[in-house]
Design a protein around this nucleic acid. Structure first.
Length: 613
DNA sequence: GCGGATCAC
DNA sequence: TATGGTGATCCGC
């Protein structure tokens, strides 16, 4: 964290940066928070060395540590390959690559837009700050929120080297008197809502980047109120502090990328601006460590450092090599970093399109097949809830596991139809788990999760974000009738079920076509149809564990499955599942339309963070 | 299209 | 004793 007395934008390289193999591992173990924010004052750097030692010793010998060590070794090997490649490239004629790079830079320069005032607002130690409102006595003692791993800590705790993302037992070693509070997400969401109300006054189309961060375009506000951007932001921050009692920091710049960097410079309760002038921006970037840029993590930082790029200004001399060393996207990203370019388009998060829904959970190491199935069933139920909440089904289902060694594996499958219900999720996921068990003898897991992607909306008609009324489908009525029918008739009529399934396939095909014709830039999620799952399922559901039909009532069904899991009928279930033929009907290959992305001026090429409420 | 890896919060 | 959950993107194959 930067104290307000430091020189903004002129952070020197942290003394924590690695120098040899042990150092790189220690650096890795520090976690993203300590390495990203940087230890800017001399005092903090000294603390950092001690912290590094404590974390190292606390972790040494654990499976987590060994895994980190493996990763660190692999990265070191990768860097060796990068350096070898660099040496080889430098013996060649690079004039072509150089010209290409310069052409791209020139092209980017033409796109530079200095007309907008973009700000990034970031709450100071948000969760901790909200907790302190309820318990003011906590303001003066080291305190953190989260168990197992800390999500936030207050500024008192940070003096001890405690950071978000840190294991709580490590934090306790650094500071035994640390007060740990459980998360209260509803409370934070409520407070965040208060803050958004105020931000909306400054930009009604502001963009929530996460629960405690937002981007605003205040160009219009400044014009209308005859204020310069700094005054406007002062006013907004004061207003937020006044009404919510939570302080925020802000960055002001010509684009989102720089604004984001700036919001960290005078944290907490401060703001910083880079003027909308090319030379000021270039100077600011020249001395800025690449690690400060959103999208450059610990790995990329080390890779860049190995070729002599620590600051954004050092990107330029290497421009001819970057594509071949790191790929086209990385080159484009770095080119934007060098020039200080970023996106100026700020839009409500509701206009973004969700691409996946997932759930995962960590537990004590587990090798027992039955217990793993219970976890899988639990995950399936959780995902069902989340899919219902977000109103999606998935055409692709992925299983994620973390071995006891911390190694992560994923396996995915494309079910014959979009899935959303727990027993479907379970049925399609179980073969993947069974195969892993077969391929990895003595499989022991510490995490298991499920993810749906290739989403299909099940959203009902309503009013979308722009106030346009979206049409319900006439077919809705038909499916409703079928639903009623199915519910009133407990006999399974195979023919009727078949027809219903056929109708649904046809409907989905229609929806696909409709969706392709929609303007995805205006309609965030195209309503498709009423839930018609009942038409494709008989009133009795087959228990995924024992295979016997059970009441389709959700609660009764789930109770049965839980009971069944406890009855050790797993072996038969695995066999049944392995023998069960996964319906071979290929899903439609058409994809949903994705909002066009220029790619040239994305805030961050690797990701677009969304916040869904 | 799949699986691994990286990144952010 | 002990190191999270959700979502996104990129790369190599």
């Amino acid at each position: 964290m930067q104290s307000s007395g430091d020189t903004p934008g002129k952070d020197v390289k942290s003394d924590l940066a690695p120098t040899d193999d042990f150092e790189t591992l220690k650096y890795q173990l520090l976690g993203p928070s300590l390495t990203k924010a940087g230890q800017d004052s001399v005092d903090q750097q000294k603390v950092g060395l001690v912290v590094s030692e404590v974390i190292y010793n606390a972790s040494k010998g654990s499976k987590f540590f060994n895994h980190e060590q493996d990763r660190d070794r692999n990265l070191t090997l990768k860097i060796e390959r990068i350096l070898k490649q660099k040496a080889r490239l430098e013996t060649l004629d690079l004039s072509h690559d150089l010209r290409r790079a310069d052409e791209y830079l020139a092209e980017l320069e033409l796109s530079r837009d200095l007309s907008q005032h973009i700000i990034h607002v970031d709450c100071d130690a948000f969760f901790a700050a909200v907790e302190e409102l309820d318990r003011p006595e906590l303001k003066t003692v080291p305190m953190a929120v989260g168990k197992g791993v800390l999500t936030t800590c207050n500024y008192v705790a940070r003096k001890f080297g405690i950071r978000s993302g840190m294991a709580s037992f490590v934090a306790k070693k650094l500071c035994p008197q640390l007060v740990l509070l459980p998360q209260n997400y509803e409370k934070y969401t409520e407070k965040a809502k208060e803050m958004r109300t105020i931000m909306a006054e400054y930009d009604p189309l502001f963009e929530s980047a996460s629960i405690d961060e937002a981007y605003l375009n205040i160009t219009a506000y400044c014009d209308e109120n005859q204020l310069n951007p700094e005054e406007a932001v002062q006013r907004m921050r004061a207003e937020i502090l006044e009404t919510t009692q939570v302080s925020v920091s802000a960055g002001i710049a010509a684009n989102a990328k720089i604004a984001k960097i700036c919001s960290n410079i005078n944290k907490p309760n401060g703001q910083f601006r880079v003027p909308n002038e090319r030379t000021a921006i270039m100077e600011f970037m020249r001395e800025l460590p690449v690690r400060k840029v959103n999208g450059v993590g610990r790995v990329f930082e080390r890779e860049l450092e190995s070729i002599g790029v620590k600051k954004c200004g050092e990107i330029f001399p290497q421009r001819a090599l970057l594509t071949k060393l790191f790929g086209e996207k990385a080159f484009q990203f770095l080119a934007q970093c060098y020039l200080g370019l970023g996106r100026t388009k700020i839009e409500p998060v509701e206009t973004h399109e969700r691409k996946s829904v997932s759930t995962e959970t960590t537990f004590h190491e587990l090798g027992d097949k039955e217990a793993l199935r219970a976890k899988l069933w639990w995950a399936a139920q959780e995902l069902e809830k989340d899919l219902a909440r977000t109103q999606f089904k998935g055409r692709t289902l992925a299983l994620k596991v973390k071995l006891h060694t911390f190694e992560v594996l994923t396996r995915q499958t494309a079910p014959s139809r979009a899935v959303s219900r727990a027993q479907d999720l379970y049925s399609f996921a179980l073969p993947m788990l069974a195969k892993l068990e077969k391929d990895i003898p003595g499989l022991e897991l510490r995490l298991l999760g499920l993810r749906c992607s290739n989403l299909v909306s099940t959203q009902k008609a309503g009013i979308n974000f722009f106030g346009a009324i979206t049409n319900p489908k006439p077919e809705t009525k038909v499916t409703d009738e079928a639903t009623v029918n199915a519910e009133s008739n407990h006999e399974i009529d195979a023919e009727e079920a078949f027809e219903a399934a056929a109708r649904q396939e046809a409907q989905e095909e229609m929806n696909d076509l409709e969706q392709l014709s929609q303007d995805a830039s205006l309609v965030p999620t195209t309503p498709q149809r009423e839930e018609s799952v009942a038409t494709e399922d008989p009133p009795l559901w087959d228990c995924p564990i024992c295979g016997r039909p059970q009441s389709a009532d959700d609660r009764t069904f789930n109770e049965h499955v839980d009971f069944c899991l406890s009855k050790r009928t797993i072996r038969e279930a695995v066999q049944a599942t392995e023998e069960t033929e996964v319906a071979p009907n290929p899903p439609p290959t058409r994809k949903r339309k994705v909002p066009s992305q220029s790619g040239a001026l994305e805030d961050d090429p690797k990701q677009k963070r969304l916040f869904f409420q």
